[in-house]
Design a protein around this nucleic acid. Structure first.
Lengths: 216, 216
DNA sequence: CTGCCTATGTTATTATATTAACAAGGTCGT
DNA sequence: ACGACCTTGTTAATATAATAACATAGGCAG
């Protein structure tokens, strides 16, 4: 059994990847942890430690070869092969997510987008047709899709997740504002935009601050 | 100077709030940390510790009064007064975010949505008109808006943020896939959906796992 | 009013994550 | 080929967060 990397590191890997993509497109061949620090906002020490967790990717005195490091990160994250995913819920958010990933995320393939509302079914996002929910199991099984994004109302989220898991989905990005119950081996990432906004509001500088902090 | 609560706690506060809203709408008057644990997925100990950080809100032997706890959380997060916000970038994502918050987030008020593309300006989201970027400073200043959500392309994000900060914004929820440079007193939360998806992919169960973990 | 029960709030322990210090391995000029 | 310099990779120290253990206070029955 392979050991998973600490969550804190995994969270940063895609950010390294994006910065590397930028450097490579500007034809930068070597990059130091200090430069990566400027680009990412993380400290150089932390960056070196993150990479070191997976092995020694750099050359001392010089830095990291951008192409090589990128290939390693792709492999580590699991983006060295195209990842198929389905989107459930074709409201505005679902459409936005689908189109964004089709256009801008070269590492993933949207295998299908589904909606419970028959009125939505048939309309298109780019070249992709929105399909009725009943088509979902076949698509997941035939294409062996493992990843799903769900952007349905909170009320229907749990039922949707149950169906997804039953059909073989093992990783879920959940935009519905609700806690999902799933078997232990299924991974759920919550991307609740309301929560993000509300916790941000905590940090807004206000004039009166009585109860907002520990007063002991 | 008041001390800010640990980030880890702040992140959970909106989740407690949502669960409480649900309980109150079902007319539950008292709730224990154990029940909250079931609803949120956090441990009961952690929940008690989180609340205790801000004071003693429960009654021993009984639990927490839902209404009272809710009012405390609202005050702590800063949602006891309506929060105004602006949205910059009226692409599909910007529209989705705006409409969602107008309909489903009772604690915030969308003061305006802006887009650089004149073609978008004039079209409506609910009763709210998309306005050209040049109107943005006046709206922020006149309504003293402190919070902004940005969903513009990565290339223009930094310029937009500079403008926002110049006009008085102090907290930013950033959906653009780029690292923003801001003064120290400005808070940025990154909600990069590509990152979320990619780090989720790390956890997809694959057949072959060679380099994906520390092999020392 | 007394004692048992329950759930909170606090203190202690452990685990995780970040920061800092340093040693080791390359490069490059001379 | 040698030495100064640079940047990585590793080890140590600190800080933060999560878990566990426990003591405290209120409710309620008899």
């Amino acid at each position: 059994m392979t050991k998973r990397a600490p969550k804190s590191i995994v969270k940063r890997l895609p950010i390294y990847l994006r910065v590397l993509d930028g450097l490579i497109s500007r034809e930068v061949e070597i990059v130091s942890s200090r430069v990566l620090s400027e680009e990412t906002g993380f400290t150089a020490e932390q960056i070196r430690k993150d990479f070191a967790y997976f092995g020694a990717f750099g050359t001392r005195g010089t830095g990291y070869n951008t192409e090589y490091l990128r290939s390693k990160l792709l492999r580590i994250i699991g983006l060295d092969r195209q990842t198929k995913l389905v989107v459930v819920g074709a409201g505005l958010l679902g459409k936005a997510l689908t189109r964004y990933n089709m256009l801008k995320n070269p590492y993933v393939d949207v295998a299908g987008i589904f909606d419970a509302n028959p009125a939505e079914a048939g309309s298109e996002i780019g070249s992709l047709k929105i399909r009725p929910m009943k088509d979902m199991p076949a698509v997941i099984k035939e294409q062996q899709v493992k990843v799903a994004m769900i952007s349905v109302p909170a009320e229907s989220a749990q039922q949707v997740v149950n169906d997804l898991v039953d059909n073989g989905i093992t990783a879920i990005l959940n935009f519905a504002p609700t806690k999902l119950k799933v078997p232990q081996n299924i991974h759920v990432h919550n991307a609740d935009l309301t929560n993000e906004l509300q916790s941000l509001i905590y940090y807004v500088i206000e004039d009166k601050e009585e109860l907002r902090s520990n007063s002991k």
